[in-house]
């Protein structure tokens, strides 16, 4: 894509934020695979593990104030996501869902954390990895509950359909349940983070360019306004980060629920 040129007479050449802002070399001159998103993903995993190990130390029947805060967070996932979606045998899936939510949330918050300023999930490989794990989990749960044949029969041949219509229904169910679900799960997370980071870049990079290199006073004013407006964009991104982590977790729980349901 070639750059837009709306600024006639600007001094330096302006390169709008694009895909090149999402590609990184190795940090500190390291090998290419040791780039920023990888370091962030590993750091997020360590943060999540350390946080929950620390939070689960010295648990008491009568909770202290610290424990109360952690339990509030934990019960938000346990009751609000896992128990609502999965019904009475939700316990098995709580650790996975809690870990998933925390990991995605920390990774997304790296977008607005001042040292990193880049959402890990804006590189699609990381979103695919989470989608593949979710795919394995909900298919494995269905196979564990119903056996391979039973699971495939339940998910591909829904009951109450006249037999000739299976020619039509089964491919659609296969597409929807096996192929499209992980695809949209990964793309949704990636797309939101990608679009969010791009919008932040447009306001911050474009605004600071206008402010520093604009040829007329009105451009400087526009740059300052744009930079101030970027604070609102950051607030919006805080909402989007949290919402996408929540939605990824809720949808994973829903998929598990629909594959272990007795009546499909």
């Amino acid at each position: 894509m070639r750059p837009l040129i709306p600024l006639e007479g600007a001094t330096a050449s302006y390169e709008p934020p694009s895909l090149h802002n999402f590609q990184f070399g190795g940090i500190y001159g390291g090998p290419d695979w040791l780039n920023r998103p990888l370091v962030q993903a590993v750091a997020a995993a360590i943060i999540v593990i350390a946080f929950w190990l620390w939070a689960s130390r010295q648990l008491k029947t009568v909770p202290t104030r610290r424990q109360f805060v952690f339990e509030y967070f934990y019960e938000f996932i346990r009751n609000g996501v896992a128990r609502d979606a999965l019904g009475h045998d939700f316990r098995k899936y709580v650790p996975y869902l809690l870990g998933l939510f925390s990991f995605i949330w920390v990774n997304n918050l790296f977008e607005i954390f001042f040292l990193t300023m880049f959402p890990t999930m804006a590189n699609i490989g990381y979103a695919w990895a989470l989608a593949i794990i979710a795919w394995i989990v909900y298919n494995w749960a269905g196979v564990r509950r119903h056996g391979v044949g039973g699971y495939l029969r339940r998910s591909l041949f829904p009951s109450g359909v006249p037999a000739p219509l299976y020619v039509l229904v089964t491919p659609i169910e296969f597409m929807s349940n096996i192929l499209i679900r992980p695809l949209t799960l990964g793309l949704r997370l990636f797309g939101n983070m990608f679009a969010g980071h791009l919008v932040v870049l447009v306001f911050v990079v474009g605004g600071s360019y206008l402010m520093l290199h604009g040829s007329q006073p009105i451009y400087h004013v526009a740059g300052v306004v744009s930079l101030l407006f970027s604070f609102l964009i950051f607030a919006l991104e805080l909402l989007v980060c949290t919402l996408q982590a929540y939605i990824f977790t809720v949808l994973t729980a829903q998929y598990v629920a629909s594959s272990i349901a007795d009546e499909h």
């Binding site: 679009a195 919402l243 949808l251």
Partner: peptide
């Protein structure tokens, strides 16, 4: 509503990607 919003919004995200 949040789940519905995520699914509807996915169309735009796909278009952007």
């Amino acid at each position: 509503a949040w789940i519905g919003m995520a699914i509807v919004e996915a169309l735009f995200i796909l278009a952007l990607a």
